[in-house]
């Protein structure tokens, strides 16, 4: 498999707080990578660095053979990095459909009218079609999480970065979500998924990375990683299914 995303020696601190330190990571084309780690480990910050929402102190990021390091977030999105936010950021005064159009017309670089079908299709697939004309500001938390996924898909990404989109879902809803993500995967989408709900993660990903205090603790086959003593120690007291 060819390498799609490479992160080298990435560091980020907020004042005196070192949140990401000397981080290396890669993602292959078509691969699904899971990321776990305790709260505050720096997972969301890592996503913000990869997508350009935050600028890194050191290190480099390359995507699809292009150096992304100095590029602004919108350029990285256009290059094919789609992301969802852990805390949803809907365009509250726009309809759900229009939220997707923004992603398609700018991130996806399509003519607005030519993206209508694609956006409708994404809405069907993510179960939001009945909410197409609802203002995003009036959605429930669950619907907002789905909108995060739908909007990222609207940009026609090559890599999809999902940040805890299963948080707060019922078991049944998690099954639905896993099915949706697996169907997206089947179309050769590369995925990085940060998730606390490990059993959901394990039914999707090919590889698992563990982050603790901004550093990589482990990286490899999901079952092996989960059962390693070091990871078990970090998660002591938290059940891993």
């Amino acid at each position: 498999m060819t390498n799609l995303l490479t992160v080298q020696n990435l560091s980020k601190s907020f004042g005196s707080l070192q949140v990401i330190e000397g981080f290396d990571m890669h993602l292959d084309d078509g691969e699904a990578l899971g990321i776990i780690g305790p709260n505050g480990a720096g997972k969301s910050t890592l996503f913000n660095l990869i997508t350009g929402s935050l600028t890194s102190d050191t290190g480099s990021i390359s995507f699809d053979g292009q150096d992304m390091t100095g590029l602004p977030a919108y350029a990285r999105c256009r290059a094919g990095i789609g992301r969802s936010y852990q805390i949803p950021h809907p365009f509250g005064g726009m309809t759900v459909f229009e939220n997707l159009l923004v992603g398609a017309a700018f991130g996806g670089g399509e003519k607005e009218a030519e993206s209508y079908d694609h956006c409708a299709e994404v809405l069907e697939r993510t179960g939001l079609i009945d909410k197409a004309n609802t203002l995003a500001g009036s959605l429930t938390l669950l619907e907002r999480k789905r909108l995060e996924l739908a909007r990222a898909l609207a940009t026609k990404p090559r890599a999809l970065l999902l940040d805890e989109i299963a948080g707060g879902l019922t078991e049944h809803e998690i099954q639905d979500l896993v099915a949706t993500i697996n169907s997206i995967r089947a179309e050769n989408m590369s995925i990085i998924w940060i998730e606390h709900i490990v059993h959901a993660l394990l039914s999707v990903v090919d590889r698992l990375v563990v982050i603790n205090f901004g550093q990589k603790l482990d990286d490899g086959d999901p079952q092996t990683v989960i059962n390693s003593p070091e990871v078990q120690k970090v998660y002591m007291g938290i059940s891993i299914e």
């Binding site: 602004p72 919108y74 936010y85 950021h89 809907p90 700018f106 607005e112 995003a136």
Partner: peptide, 25 residues
């Protein structure tokens, strides 16, 4: 127009519009 889509998105969330491909600046 398409620009309106971008401006309305910026109105609602600058963070999200930027990460969906809108050149806010």
């Amino acid at each position: 127009s398409r620009h309106g889509l971008a401006l309305t998105a910026i109105r609602d969330s600058e963070e999200a519009s930027n990460s969906l491909g809108v050149d806010n600046f």
